[in-house]
Write a protein that binds this DNA or RNA. Structure first.
Lengths: 134, 134
DNA sequence: TATATATTTGCAACGTTGTTGCATTTGTGT
DNA sequence: ACACAAATGCAACAACGTTGCAAATATATA
């Protein structure tokens, strides 16, 4: 799906910042921190604008964020049914810091202690990614 | 293990702030945000002191932090062999926000794409906890 | 195509958090 | 009781999260 469709689907007007952010996230294989995102945008926008855009996109389910050890947050485009999917897995490379969405991974549901009911699973796998492996 | 032992084991001097923080984290069943931690300490300490103490404890493996959706970070006492354990699971209650360490859970290792090598697994299970279930 | 209106943006401001240097205070071994 | 290494509090600064408001802009409508 390309950028215009994504915005239309979610009833969002087509503004430069929104298009730029979605284009950038679509173009990158890995998830990006807000810093990395800014560096990759074609133009500069106000912090508040980017903040609000990311917030809107998160609420709409267009993107999702991945919190990683060290209190860093990465942003990635969501697959269309992301929000409906119970389990999400991400790979975090300890070497380059890259965060990959693992869309096709299924997470085995572990046995929980009595009284706990699971609604969703978020798995972060730390390790060494394809590019850093040599 | 009680507080004094923990500090001695890690070659850390026994200061009020350190003792207070470990006591507090040992006393609570759930992990705490920095805010919640501060509210539960017996005395007040400078922000920088708490920051440095948490950092020291994290490095030593005395505590670990759990990043949760919404960019919140929770701190919890680690079991003695925490750092050596490859897989960690935490339960995050969507209702009360409580974060529980699930020490006895084993995580099934999913199949990764070619070229990716896993070194550790962090699983966060979202749902409804024992206390909030009625 | 011009216009009206609802949105979005940039700017400014403020609170919080992460982080560090430095002088003072404190813990601990002698 | 003392000396020295270590920890603390204070101050300061950068980065981030967040909001109000006025100016600019996207889009539906005439």
């Amino acid at each position: 799906m390309e950028t215009s469709n994504i915005l239309e689907t979610h009833n969002l007007s087509k503004t430069p910042c929104r298009v730029d952010i979605i284009d950038t996230l679509l173009a990158t294989e890995v998830a990006l921190t807000e810093q990395q995102l800014k560096e990759n945008l074609k133009f500069d926008y106000d912090r508040a604008t980017i903040f609000r855009t990311l917030k809107t996109f998160s609420e709409k389910g267009i993107i999702h964020c991945v919190p990683v050890e060290g209190n860093e947050v990465y942003y990635a485009i969501s697959k269309p049914n992301y929000k409906q999917t119970l389990s999400h897995a991400h790979f975090h490379c300890s070497t380059c810091g890259g965060v990959y969405c693992l869309n096709s991974i299924s997470i085995a549901e572990p046995q929980l202690p009595d009284g706990f009911a699971a609604q969703g699973y978020e798995l972060t796998i730390n390790g060494c990614c394809r590019k850093c492996k040599e």
